[in-house]
Amino acid sequence: MRTRQTGDEQLKRLKKLCGMARLSLEERGVNSLFLAFGTLTWYDKDKPDEALLSPLILAPVKLIKEPRQDVYKISILEEDVVLNPTLSLKLKQTFGIEFPEGEAIQEIPYSELITQIRELLSEQKTWRIQENVFLSLFSYAKAAMVRDIIQNEARILAHPILQAMSGDLSAYQVNYKEPLPASDLDSRVQPEQIFQILDADSSQQVVIEAAKAGSSFFVQGPPGTGKSQTIVNMIAELIGDGKSVLLVAEKDTALRVVYQRMVECGLNHLCLNLHHSGTTDKRKLIEDLSQTTVML
């Protein structure tokens, strides 16, 4: 690939791209490094005089540095090629233009896909497609969130917790349950009903019992106060009660801490890694799912 940068400037940029892509994957579980094929120059209805430039086709890749050499190689990841999701959502909402997506574009040759896009945009006389290639970081994770909000607006507005967060407590208070006081733990929680796998003090026990009761709540505390330990105990309790648990975190580090605790307690066979690093390899994901199903 020929680039506008050469020599030290090129190496500096490649090193920075490689580091930022790795950080994004490790912390947020999102691959953000893509080869962008083709760009669209277009104009929004709100700002008709301002030209906007957006990538069109995004192919997920990673940069691999050769050992002891100032050489980087681009490796295509075994993930789906996508038409810029953020652009697709904007064009659909504002202009009623719907790009193909999902499996529909995986087997289409580049030239044919570009032709389809040109046809879809044919009525936009001032828009231009340029057939070029860029290697850069693109993050469209929030586009999926926006699409989800749009598609589920009614359900979201009707959710008691979200209503409470916006100031309307009426629906939430109907099912509100007072947490069990720490002083009542010994008399009201039977030992044979406990599935905790790590030590827990009375304040943590109160949180665990609230989770078992189905309450919604926030737990705050400085580092080292046992939040991860409490999460592990909550998971064990809920699994012991025949329930499934979805653990969500903004950063992969938090997930790894909890998972490692589960491994140390011999319960890793009950865990299925849905983080990006665990779902990229579809064969590995199927094997993990099969193992978990067999153990259950």
Results as ranks from 00 to 15, higher is better:
P222R: 12
A211Q: 12
L89D: 10
D148L: 13
G221P: 12
C265D: 05
G96A: 02
P191C: 08
T293H: 06
K282Y: 01
V207R: 05
E119L: 08
G266H: 06
K45Q: 15
S88D: 01
H276E: 09
S54G: 06
E119F: 09
L169R: 14
E287L: 01
I197L: 08
T280G: 04
R2P: 11
I231R: 00
L14W: 02
Q151S: 15
F34V: 08
F195H: 15
G214A: 03
F34D: 00
L40H: 09
I76N: 11
T6V: 10
R256Q: 11
D70M: 00
E178K: 14
S215E: 11
G214H: 03
L91T: 00
I97W: 04
G278I: 13
D281Q: 12
D199P: 05
A210S: 14
K177S: 03
F217W: 02
G19H: 11
T279M: 13
C271I: 15
V133T: 11
G102D: 02
S216G: 12
I149Y: 10
L91G: 00
Q116V: 13
T253L: 07
V245D: 05
C271R: 07
E66S: 03
Y259Q: 07
S277L: 15
T115Q: 12
E26C: 04
L63R: 00
E178V: 08
N273S: 10
Q229Y: 00
R155N: 13
P85C: 12
Q93D: 05
L296Q: 11
K284A: 15
A144M: 03
M165C: 09
L289E: 02
G102E: 01
D49W: 12
L83S: 04
R128H: 08
E79Y: 00
P222H: 08
D46L: 14
L238V: 11
T6P: 04
Q5Y: 14
L135H: 10
L198Y: 10
A143W: 02
V146Q: 12
D168S: 03
C18N: 14
A164R: 10
A51N: 07
G226Q: 00
G29E: 11
L238S: 07
L23K: 15
A154K: 15
E250I: 05
S75T: 13
Y43V: 00
S202Y: 04
G242S: 06
M295C: 03
L270E: 07
G29D: 13
P160E: 07
V146D: 11
T3P: 02
D288V: 00
G240M: 05
P109W: 06
K142D: 14
Y176D: 01
L40V: 03
G167A: 01
A254L: 12
L289Y: 04
L274C: 07
F37V: 10
P85L: 14
A210D: 07
L58Y: 02
A144E: 12
L198W: 10
P181K: 02
V257Y: 10
R28Q: 14
K45F: 11
G226H: 04
H159P: 06
D186T: 13
L135F: 03
D8F: 00
L169D: 08
Q260W: 01
S290T: 15
A213G: 08
S170I: 03
G240P: 08
K212F: 09
A171M: 06
